[in-house]
Design a protein around this nucleic acid. Sequence first.
DNA 1: CACATTCACTTACATTATGAAAGTAAGTAT
DNA 2: ATACTTACTTTCATAATGTAAGTGAATGTG
Lengths: 149, 149
Amino acid sequence: MKRTDRKSDCAINFALETFGDPWSLLIVRDIVYFGKNTYGEFLGSAERIGTSVLAHRLAVLEKKGILSKSLSKIDQRKEEYHLTAKGLDLIPLLLDLTEWGAAHDPRTGASRKWITAIRTDRNTVIKRTQDIVRKGGSVLGDFDRIVNK
Amino acid sequence: MKRTDRKSDCAINFALETFGDPWSLLIVRDIVYFGKNTYGEFLGSAERIGTSVLAHRLAVLEKKGILSKSLSKIDQRKEEYHLTAKGLDLIPLLLDLTEWGAAHDPRTGASRKWITAIRTDRNTVIKRTQDIVRKGGSVLGDFDRIVNK
DNA sequence: CACATTCACTTACATTATGAAAGTAAGTAT
DNA sequence: ATACTTACTTTCATAATGTAAGTGAATGTG
């Protein structure tokens, strides 16, 4: 059986069948946290996703309505990937992953300030992050606009 | 490279390397939502995990400190799997997966009442669910104690 | 304009993970 | 004593990932 075949109507199973592979959420993270938007930028990330896997994941995420793809106006070789509304709805989940990882990884790279912010002002951080990312920004690129405003 | 080799110090990557496969969170869901605790019960779930995959995932989740394993006092053939503190910390994430799945799956099986509860009283639902599961209960088995109290 | 480079992929192939089925050993029910 | 249940292991086919080497179109450079 393929991993994408629908196995039940459980909401959690639906979510995992959409992005529950080892790479999809790292691509979403690249967009949300690092402001990456192109194939080459995703390829360059620390986790070193393989080129064939990346192409496949991008195609699937676009087909499932998490990402939208459009040609760059500046450089016609480049495709730009952005989060759809469905994709922006993954931001709360990303924050939970961040919180869990930071709490349980003794050598986490997450900043104290960010962890505190998502713990104490979760709803505000979610809304601001979604607004920023919708406009093409990112957590690291617009940190002050999300945390210190 | 094995999928379990550490690829970066990103908190999200750490989390995904711990439980970011297609099955781990379904096992956690079985415990949290359905109160399942044994190999046979996990095997019986709707998504039909394969027996060899289940054995492997349980071993890895135990090794990574998400699950603890102990012999049943009543029936010595049975091993019982329970969430550790680290595993109970996954409950917020499970709720987000539920919310996302219910919001974007047109034929979701999630109940309206539950979705409303986790949307409006997230922190309370998290705490109560953790308390209940810590004591061996589950969302479906103790619904009223979590939602209507 | 010619040419090298960049970019988003595709293709090919080895390795790892999953899917499905059939065992096995120990504990329990009769 | 015997049959059954339970938690696995083993085996083998298929699917997904890891790695490297292309390919064709757009862009930068002289």
